[in-house]
Design a protein around this nucleic acid. Structure first.
Lengths: 209, 209
DNA sequence: TGCCAATTGGACCGTACGGTCCTAATGTCA
DNA sequence: TGACATTAGGACCGTACGGTCCAATTGGCA
Protein backbone atom coordinates (compact mmCIF):
# COMPACT_ATOMS: atom_id res chain seq x y z
CA UNK A 1 0.00 0.00 0.00
CA UNK A 2 2.76 2.42 0.89
CA UNK A 3 4.85 2.36 -2.24
CA UNK A 4 8.45 3.55 -2.37
CA UNK A 5 7.52 6.32 -4.72
CA UNK A 6 4.97 7.65 -2.30
CA UNK A 7 7.56 7.82 0.45
CA UNK A 8 10.00 9.43 -1.92
CA UNK A 9 7.47 12.13 -2.75
CA UNK A 10 6.60 12.58 0.90
CA UNK A 11 10.23 13.01 1.88
CA UNK A 12 10.97 15.43 -0.91
CA UNK A 13 7.89 17.45 -0.05
CA UNK A 14 8.77 17.45 3.64
CA UNK A 15 12.17 18.95 2.90
CA UNK A 16 10.76 21.61 0.62
CA UNK A 17 7.95 22.53 2.99
CA UNK A 18 10.40 22.78 5.87
CA UNK A 19 12.51 25.14 3.80
CA UNK A 20 9.89 27.39 2.23
CA UNK A 21 6.58 26.65 3.88
CA UNK A 22 3.56 24.93 2.40
CA UNK A 23 2.12 27.74 0.31
CA UNK A 24 5.43 28.60 -1.30
CA UNK A 25 6.11 25.00 -2.23
CA UNK A 26 4.55 24.26 -5.59
CA UNK A 27 3.53 20.88 -6.89
CA UNK A 28 6.02 21.35 -9.71
CA UNK A 29 8.77 21.87 -7.15
CA UNK A 30 7.86 18.58 -5.50
CA UNK A 31 7.78 16.83 -8.86
CA UNK A 32 11.25 18.07 -9.68
CA UNK A 33 12.68 17.22 -6.27
CA UNK A 34 11.16 13.75 -6.28
CA UNK A 35 12.22 13.22 -9.89
CA UNK A 36 8.81 12.41 -11.20
CA UNK A 37 8.05 12.57 -14.88
CA UNK A 38 5.24 15.10 -14.68
CA UNK A 39 2.01 16.21 -13.14
CA UNK A 40 0.12 13.06 -14.03
CA UNK A 41 2.76 11.06 -12.25
CA UNK A 42 2.27 13.07 -9.09
CA UNK A 43 -1.51 13.02 -9.23
CA UNK A 44 -1.33 9.31 -9.64
CA UNK A 45 -0.26 9.16 -5.99
CA UNK A 46 -1.97 12.14 -4.39
CA UNK A 47 -5.33 13.53 -5.19
CA UNK A 48 -4.39 17.09 -4.25
CA UNK A 49 -1.67 19.27 -2.83
CA UNK A 50 -3.68 19.57 0.34
CA UNK A 51 -3.75 15.80 0.84
CA UNK A 52 0.00 15.75 0.30
CA UNK A 53 0.36 18.35 3.04
CA UNK A 54 -1.70 16.31 5.47
CA UNK A 55 0.37 13.21 4.86
CA UNK A 56 3.62 15.09 5.19
CA UNK A 57 2.44 16.38 8.55
CA UNK A 58 1.52 12.86 9.61
CA UNK A 59 4.91 11.56 8.69
CA UNK A 60 6.69 14.39 10.45
CA UNK A 61 4.81 13.55 13.59
CA UNK A 62 5.59 9.86 13.30
CA UNK A 63 9.24 10.67 12.89
CA UNK A 64 9.14 12.96 15.88
CA UNK A 65 7.28 10.33 17.89
CA UNK A 66 9.93 7.73 17.10
CA UNK A 67 12.99 9.88 17.54
CA UNK A 68 11.77 12.23 20.24
CA UNK A 69 8.66 11.29 22.14
CA UNK A 70 9.81 7.68 22.47
CA UNK A 71 12.37 8.83 24.99
CA UNK A 72 9.59 9.98 27.29
CA UNK A 73 8.46 6.37 27.62
CA UNK A 74 11.77 4.62 28.24
CA UNK A 75 10.87 2.35 31.14
CA UNK A 76 14.36 1.91 32.62
CA UNK A 77 15.13 5.58 33.20
CA UNK A 78 13.96 7.89 35.92
CA UNK A 79 11.06 9.99 34.58
CA UNK A 80 12.51 13.41 35.26
CA UNK A 81 15.79 12.29 33.80
CA UNK A 82 13.87 11.17 30.72
CA UNK A 83 12.40 14.62 30.38
CA UNK A 84 15.88 16.10 30.34
CA UNK A 85 16.98 13.57 27.75
CA UNK A 86 13.99 14.45 25.64
CA UNK A 87 14.91 18.11 25.71
CA UNK A 88 18.44 17.18 24.70
CA UNK A 89 17.00 15.17 21.83
CA UNK A 90 15.06 18.19 20.58
CA UNK A 91 18.27 20.18 20.62
CA UNK A 92 20.07 17.40 18.77
CA UNK A 93 17.30 17.18 16.18
CA UNK A 94 17.61 20.88 15.52
CA UNK A 95 21.38 20.68 15.40
CA UNK A 96 21.08 18.32 12.42
CA UNK A 97 19.87 21.17 10.27
CA UNK A 98 22.03 23.74 12.01
CA UNK A 99 18.90 25.18 13.58
CA UNK A 100 17.84 26.48 10.21
CA UNK A 101 14.75 24.43 9.75
CA UNK A 102 12.61 25.03 12.78
CA UNK A 103 9.80 22.87 13.98
CA UNK A 104 7.65 21.37 11.24
CA UNK A 105 4.63 21.82 13.48
CA UNK A 106 5.38 25.35 14.58
CA UNK A 107 6.09 26.44 11.04
CA UNK A 108 2.88 25.05 9.65
CA UNK A 109 0.99 26.36 12.64
CA UNK A 110 2.15 29.91 12.12
CA UNK A 111 1.60 29.74 8.39
CA UNK A 112 -1.78 28.07 8.24
CA UNK A 113 -3.49 28.18 11.63
CA UNK A 114 -5.82 30.96 10.59
CA UNK A 115 -5.95 30.39 6.89
CA UNK A 116 -6.65 26.68 6.76
CA UNK A 117 -8.83 24.99 9.33
CA UNK A 118 -7.87 21.47 8.20
CA UNK A 119 -4.24 22.06 9.08
CA UNK A 120 -5.10 23.90 12.27
CA UNK A 121 -7.05 20.96 13.61
CA UNK A 122 -4.32 18.50 12.71
CA UNK A 123 -1.61 20.58 14.32
CA UNK A 124 -3.73 20.98 17.40
CA UNK A 125 -3.93 17.20 17.58
CA UNK A 126 -0.15 16.97 17.28
CA UNK A 127 0.37 19.33 20.20
CA UNK A 128 -2.24 17.49 22.21
CA UNK A 129 -0.59 14.11 21.71
CA UNK A 130 2.75 15.63 22.58
CA UNK A 131 1.36 17.25 25.72
CA UNK A 132 -0.36 14.04 26.69
CA UNK A 133 2.95 12.16 26.63
CA UNK A 134 4.49 14.71 28.94
CA UNK A 135 1.51 14.58 31.27
CA UNK A 136 1.83 10.80 31.55
CA UNK A 137 5.47 11.19 32.45
CA UNK A 138 4.67 13.83 35.02
CA UNK A 139 2.07 11.56 36.54
CA UNK A 140 4.60 8.79 36.74
CA UNK A 141 7.05 11.17 38.40
CA UNK A 142 4.55 12.51 40.92
CA UNK A 143 6.25 10.93 43.97
CA UNK A 144 9.25 13.12 43.25
CA UNK A 145 7.19 16.21 42.50
CA UNK A 146 5.60 18.80 44.71
CA UNK A 147 1.95 18.18 45.38
CA UNK A 148 0.65 21.27 43.65
CA UNK A 149 2.33 20.73 40.29
CA UNK A 150 -0.16 21.38 37.50
CA UNK A 151 0.70 18.79 34.87
CA UNK A 152 -1.49 20.29 32.16
CA UNK A 153 0.03 23.71 32.59
CA UNK A 154 3.59 22.47 32.90
CA UNK A 155 3.35 20.26 29.82
CA UNK A 156 2.09 23.20 27.78
CA UNK A 157 4.84 25.38 29.13
CA UNK A 158 7.49 22.91 28.05
CA UNK A 159 6.12 22.67 24.53
CA UNK A 160 5.70 26.42 24.17
CA UNK A 161 9.22 27.11 25.40
CA UNK A 162 10.67 24.57 22.96
CA UNK A 163 8.64 25.80 20.01
CA UNK A 164 9.48 29.39 20.76
CA UNK A 165 13.13 28.52 21.20
CA UNK A 166 13.29 26.70 17.90
CA UNK A 167 11.68 29.65 16.15
CA UNK A 168 14.10 32.14 17.66
CA UNK A 169 17.01 29.91 16.82
CA UNK A 170 15.90 29.86 13.23
CA UNK A 171 15.54 33.61 13.04
CA UNK A 172 18.90 34.27 14.66
CA UNK A 173 20.56 31.39 12.88
CA UNK A 174 22.26 30.52 16.12
CA UNK A 175 21.87 27.15 17.73
CA UNK A 176 23.12 28.42 21.06
CA UNK A 177 19.80 30.20 21.55
CA UNK A 178 18.07 26.86 21.74
CA UNK A 179 20.83 25.39 23.88
CA UNK A 180 20.54 28.18 26.41
CA UNK A 181 16.79 27.88 26.61
CA UNK A 182 17.08 24.13 27.02
CA UNK A 183 19.24 24.69 30.09
CA UNK A 184 16.77 27.11 31.60
CA UNK A 185 13.86 24.85 30.82
CA UNK A 186 15.52 21.97 32.65
CA UNK A 187 16.09 24.22 35.63
CA UNK A 188 12.46 25.23 35.59
CA UNK A 189 11.35 21.63 35.56
CA UNK A 190 13.79 20.79 38.35
CA UNK A 191 12.21 23.53 40.39
CA UNK A 192 9.07 21.42 40.69
CA UNK A 193 10.87 18.58 42.42
CA UNK A 194 9.87 17.83 45.99
CA UNK A 195 13.39 18.34 47.33
CA UNK A 196 13.58 21.73 45.68
CA UNK A 197 17.03 21.18 44.26
CA UNK A 198 17.41 23.28 41.19
CA UNK A 199 15.10 25.81 42.66
CA UNK A 200 17.57 27.23 45.13
CA UNK A 201 20.83 26.92 43.27
CA UNK A 202 19.71 26.87 39.70
CA UNK A 203 20.66 23.26 39.07
CA UNK A 204 18.17 20.64 37.95
CA UNK A 205 17.55 17.45 39.87
CA UNK A 206 19.29 15.33 37.34
CA UNK A 207 22.32 15.94 35.18
CA UNK A 208 22.45 19.03 33.07
CA UNK A 209 24.65 19.19 29.98
CA UNK B 1 5.33 62.83 4.66
CA UNK B 2 3.19 60.22 6.36
CA UNK B 3 -0.14 60.75 4.70
CA UNK B 4 -3.41 59.45 6.09
CA UNK B 5 -3.85 57.19 3.12
CA UNK B 6 -0.52 55.58 3.74
CA UNK B 7 -1.47 54.80 7.31
CA UNK B 8 -4.82 53.53 6.16
CA UNK B 9 -3.13 51.15 3.75
CA UNK B 10 -0.62 50.10 6.38
CA UNK B 11 -3.35 49.32 8.90
CA UNK B 12 -5.45 47.39 6.42
CA UNK B 13 -2.43 45.41 5.32
CA UNK B 14 -1.41 44.71 8.92
CA UNK B 15 -4.81 43.20 9.63
CA UNK B 16 -4.80 41.06 6.51
CA UNK B 17 -1.24 39.87 7.04
CA UNK B 18 -2.01 38.99 10.65
CA UNK B 19 -4.96 36.94 9.46
CA UNK B 20 -3.53 35.14 6.44
CA UNK B 21 0.19 35.72 6.39
CA UNK B 22 2.21 37.82 4.00
CA UNK B 23 2.34 35.50 1.01
CA UNK B 24 -1.37 34.81 1.06
CA UNK B 25 -2.26 38.47 1.23
CA UNK B 26 -2.46 39.88 -2.28
CA UNK B 27 -2.04 43.48 -3.26
CA UNK B 28 -5.59 43.39 -4.59
CA UNK B 29 -6.79 42.29 -1.16
CA UNK B 30 -5.07 45.27 0.42
CA UNK B 31 -6.53 47.60 -2.20
CA UNK B 32 -10.01 46.36 -1.47
CA UNK B 33 -9.59 46.52 2.30
CA UNK B 34 -8.13 50.01 2.18
CA UNK B 35 -10.78 51.12 -0.33
CA UNK B 36 -8.36 52.30 -2.95
CA UNK B 37 -9.45 52.85 -6.51
CA UNK B 38 -7.00 50.47 -8.12
CA UNK B 39 -3.46 49.25 -8.53
CA UNK B 40 -2.09 52.60 -9.61
CA UNK B 41 -3.50 54.12 -6.47
CA UNK B 42 -1.65 51.59 -4.36
CA UNK B 43 1.60 51.83 -6.27
CA UNK B 44 1.40 55.57 -5.88
CA UNK B 45 2.21 55.03 -2.20
CA UNK B 46 4.35 51.90 -2.17
CA UNK B 47 6.85 50.81 -4.70
CA UNK B 48 6.32 47.10 -4.11
CA UNK B 49 4.52 44.58 -1.97
CA UNK B 50 7.81 43.82 -0.28
CA UNK B 51 8.27 47.42 0.80
CA UNK B 52 4.73 47.40 2.15
CA UNK B 53 5.61 44.32 4.18
CA UNK B 54 8.67 45.98 5.67
CA UNK B 55 6.72 49.05 6.69
CA UNK B 56 3.94 46.98 8.20
CA UNK B 57 6.54 45.15 10.28
CA UNK B 58 8.02 48.48 11.37
CA UNK B 59 4.66 49.76 12.45
CA UNK B 60 3.83 46.57 14.32
CA UNK B 61 7.04 46.91 16.25
CA UNK B 62 6.37 50.55 17.05
CA UNK B 63 2.94 49.65 18.31
CA UNK B 64 4.38 46.87 20.41
CA UNK B 65 7.10 49.17 21.70
CA UNK B 66 4.52 51.73 22.79
CA UNK B 67 1.95 49.43 24.26
CA UNK B 68 4.23 46.67 25.55
CA UNK B 69 7.91 47.40 25.85
CA UNK B 70 7.23 50.84 27.33
CA UNK B 71 6.15 49.13 30.53
CA UNK B 72 9.63 47.71 30.95
CA UNK B 73 10.97 51.23 31.33
CA UNK B 74 8.44 52.69 33.78
CA UNK B 75 10.74 54.43 36.26
CA UNK B 76 8.43 54.44 39.28
CA UNK B 77 7.86 50.70 39.48
CA UNK B 78 10.10 47.99 40.83
CA UNK B 79 11.89 46.32 37.89
CA UNK B 80 10.78 42.76 38.55
CA UNK B 81 7.25 43.98 39.10
CA UNK B 82 7.50 45.70 35.74
CA UNK B 83 8.46 42.45 34.10
CA UNK B 84 5.32 40.85 35.48
CA UNK B 85 3.23 43.75 34.26
CA UNK B 86 4.80 43.41 30.85
CA UNK B 87 3.84 39.75 30.70
CA UNK B 88 0.32 40.68 31.71
CA UNK B 89 0.29 43.25 28.91
CA UNK B 90 1.24 40.60 26.35
CA UNK B 91 -1.64 38.48 27.57
CA UNK B 92 -3.98 41.46 27.37
CA UNK B 93 -2.81 42.28 23.86
CA UNK B 94 -3.56 38.75 22.77
CA UNK B 95 -6.90 38.79 24.51
CA UNK B 96 -7.96 41.66 22.25
CA UNK B 97 -8.08 39.31 19.30
CA UNK B 98 -9.24 36.38 21.36
CA UNK B 99 -5.82 34.81 20.93
CA UNK B 100 -6.57 34.20 17.29
CA UNK B 101 -4.01 36.46 15.79
CA UNK B 102 -0.70 35.41 17.22
CA UNK B 103 2.44 37.44 17.31
CA UNK B 104 3.06 39.52 14.19
CA UNK B 105 6.76 38.81 14.59
CA UNK B 106 6.48 35.12 15.24
CA UNK B 107 4.10 34.65 12.35
CA UNK B 108 6.28 36.43 9.86
CA UNK B 109 9.33 34.70 11.28
CA UNK B 110 7.90 31.25 10.75
CA UNK B 111 6.59 32.11 7.32
CA UNK B 112 9.55 33.93 5.87
CA UNK B 113 12.69 33.30 7.93
CA UNK B 114 14.10 30.85 5.41
CA UNK B 115 12.45 32.12 2.27
CA UNK B 116 13.17 35.81 2.51
CA UNK B 117 16.40 37.12 3.95
CA UNK B 118 15.17 40.71 4.09
CA UNK B 119 12.39 39.82 6.49
CA UNK B 120 14.58 37.47 8.49
CA UNK B 121 17.09 40.21 9.22
CA UNK B 122 14.37 42.65 10.22
CA UNK B 123 12.68 40.18 12.52
CA UNK B 124 16.01 39.32 14.06
CA UNK B 125 16.44 43.01 14.81
CA UNK B 126 13.00 43.13 16.42
CA UNK B 127 13.85 40.25 18.73
CA UNK B 128 17.17 41.81 19.53
CA UNK B 129 15.66 45.14 20.52
CA UNK B 130 13.09 43.33 22.61
CA UNK B 131 15.74 41.24 24.33
CA UNK B 132 17.87 44.30 24.92
CA UNK B 133 15.03 46.00 26.80
CA UNK B 134 14.68 43.00 29.07
CA UNK B 135 18.43 42.86 29.64
CA UNK B 136 18.46 46.49 30.73
CA UNK B 137 15.68 45.77 33.16
CA UNK B 138 17.49 42.74 34.50
CA UNK B 139 20.61 44.83 34.96
CA UNK B 140 18.63 47.39 36.86
CA UNK B 141 17.19 44.64 39.04
CA UNK B 142 20.51 42.99 39.73
CA UNK B 143 20.57 43.91 43.45
CA UNK B 144 17.50 41.73 43.88
CA UNK B 145 18.79 38.94 41.69
CA UNK B 146 21.11 36.06 42.35
CA UNK B 147 24.67 36.73 41.27
CA UNK B 148 24.83 34.06 38.61
CA UNK B 149 21.75 35.12 36.63
CA UNK B 150 22.56 35.10 32.93
CA UNK B 151 20.66 38.09 31.56
CA UNK B 152 21.19 37.21 27.91
CA UNK B 153 19.91 33.70 28.39
CA UNK B 154 17.00 34.70 30.59
CA UNK B 155 15.85 37.44 28.25
CA UNK B 156 15.81 34.99 25.36
CA UNK B 157 13.95 32.47 27.44
CA UNK B 158 11.23 34.97 28.25
CA UNK B 159 10.75 35.90 24.62
CA UNK B 160 10.76 32.31 23.43
CA UNK B 161 8.25 31.25 26.04
CA UNK B 162 5.92 34.10 25.13
CA UNK B 163 6.23 33.54 21.39
CA UNK B 164 5.67 29.82 21.80
CA UNK B 165 2.74 30.43 24.08
CA UNK B 166 1.09 32.81 21.66
CA UNK B 167 1.51 30.32 18.86
CA UNK B 168 0.01 27.46 20.86
CA UNK B 169 -2.84 29.69 21.95
CA UNK B 170 -3.59 30.43 18.34
CA UNK B 171 -3.54 26.80 17.34
CA UNK B 172 -5.75 25.70 20.22
CA UNK B 173 -7.91 28.79 20.02
CA UNK B 174 -7.80 28.95 23.78
CA UNK B 175 -6.51 32.00 25.58
CA UNK B 176 -6.08 30.08 28.81
CA UNK B 177 -3.02 28.40 27.30
CA UNK B 178 -1.25 31.74 27.24
CA UNK B 179 -2.57 32.67 30.67
CA UNK B 180 -1.21 29.47 32.19
CA UNK B 181 2.18 29.91 30.60
CA UNK B 182 2.30 33.52 31.79
CA UNK B 183 1.86 32.30 35.35
CA UNK B 184 4.64 29.75 35.01
CA UNK B 185 6.90 32.27 33.35
CA UNK B 186 6.47 34.69 36.23
CA UNK B 187 7.29 31.92 38.66
CA UNK B 188 10.41 31.09 36.69
CA UNK B 189 11.54 34.69 36.78
CA UNK B 190 10.80 34.91 40.49
CA UNK B 191 13.02 31.92 41.00
CA UNK B 192 16.02 34.07 40.12
CA UNK B 193 15.43 36.45 42.99
CA UNK B 194 18.06 36.57 45.68
CA UNK B 195 15.61 35.65 48.43
CA UNK B 196 14.49 32.63 46.47
CA UNK B 197 10.80 33.26 47.04
CA UNK B 198 8.90 31.69 44.24
CA UNK B 199 11.54 29.06 43.92
CA UNK B 200 10.50 27.09 46.94
CA UNK B 201 6.78 27.57 46.99
CA UNK B 202 6.03 28.37 43.39
CA UNK B 203 5.14 31.99 44.02
CA UNK B 204 6.90 34.89 42.33
CA UNK B 205 8.49 37.78 44.19
CA UNK B 206 5.72 40.14 43.31
CA UNK B 207 2.02 39.66 42.94
CA UNK B 208 0.75 37.01 40.62
CA UNK B 209 -2.80 37.25 39.33
C1' DT C 1 -0.50 -14.80 -22.68
C1' DG C 2 -3.27 -11.02 -20.58
C1' DC C 3 -4.17 -7.81 -16.90
C1' DC C 4 -3.11 -3.84 -14.38
C1' DA C 5 -0.33 -0.75 -11.99
C1' DA C 6 3.43 2.30 -12.76
C1' DT C 7 5.55 5.51 -15.76
C1' DT C 8 6.39 8.98 -19.39
C1' DG C 9 5.33 13.20 -21.80
C1' DG C 10 2.90 16.91 -22.99
C1' DA C 11 -1.03 19.87 -24.14
C1' DC C 12 -4.25 22.47 -22.02
C1' DC C 13 -7.27 25.48 -18.81
C1' DG C 14 -8.83 28.95 -15.68
C1' DT C 15 -7.32 31.77 -12.25
C1' DA C 16 -4.50 34.61 -9.59
C1' DC C 17 -0.64 37.20 -8.95
C1' DG C 18 2.79 41.35 -8.92
C1' DG C 19 3.57 44.93 -11.59
C1' DT C 20 3.40 48.61 -15.57
C1' DC C 21 1.35 52.07 -18.31
C1' DC C 22 -1.78 55.49 -19.75
C1' DT C 23 -5.41 58.87 -19.49
C1' DA C 24 -8.24 61.85 -17.16
C1' DA C 25 -10.64 64.06 -13.41
C1' DT C 26 -10.38 66.38 -8.83
C1' DG C 27 -8.64 69.10 -5.23
C1' DT C 28 -5.42 72.33 -3.06
C1' DC C 29 -2.15 75.69 -2.19
C1' DA C 30 0.78 79.58 -3.98
C1' DT D 1 -4.03 81.21 -12.98
C1' DG D 2 -0.59 77.43 -12.79
C1' DA D 3 1.81 73.53 -10.51
C1' DC D 4 1.33 69.39 -8.34
C1' DA D 5 -0.20 65.66 -5.52
C1' DT D 6 -4.20 62.79 -5.21
C1' DT D 7 -7.78 59.96 -6.95
C1' DA D 8 -9.92 57.23 -10.39
C1' DG D 9 -10.44 53.51 -13.79
C1' DG D 10 -8.95 50.28 -16.74
C1' DA D 11 -6.13 47.76 -20.16
C1' DC D 12 -2.44 44.98 -20.30
C1' DC D 13 1.59 41.61 -19.52
C1' DG D 14 4.30 37.72 -18.20
C1' DT D 15 4.44 34.24 -15.04
C1' DA D 16 3.12 30.82 -11.89
C1' DC D 17 -0.07 27.96 -9.96
C1' DG D 18 -3.28 23.75 -9.07
C1' DG D 19 -5.41 20.68 -11.64
C1' DT D 20 -7.30 17.83 -15.83
C1' DC D 21 -7.04 14.98 -19.77
C1' DC D 22 -5.14 12.05 -23.07
C1' DA D 23 -2.14 8.81 -25.42
C1' DA D 24 1.49 5.74 -25.20
C1' DT D 25 4.90 2.81 -22.97
C1' DT D 26 6.95 -0.25 -19.55
C1' DG D 27 7.15 -3.98 -16.39
C1' DG D 28 5.88 -7.45 -13.11
C1' DC D 29 2.81 -11.07 -11.91
C1' DA D 30 -0.95 -14.62 -12.37
Amino acid sequence: MISDRRLQILDAAATLIAERGFTSTSVDDVIKAAKLSGKSHFYHYFKSKEELGYEVLNRQFERFAERGLAILREPMIDPLERLNLFIDAVVALQAESGGRRGSPFGNLAAELADAHEGFRVRIEAVFERWASQIRSLLWEARPQLQDDVDAVRLSRFIIAALEGAVLMTRVKRDLSVLEGIAIDLKRFIGMHARDGIGATNGRPVVGVE
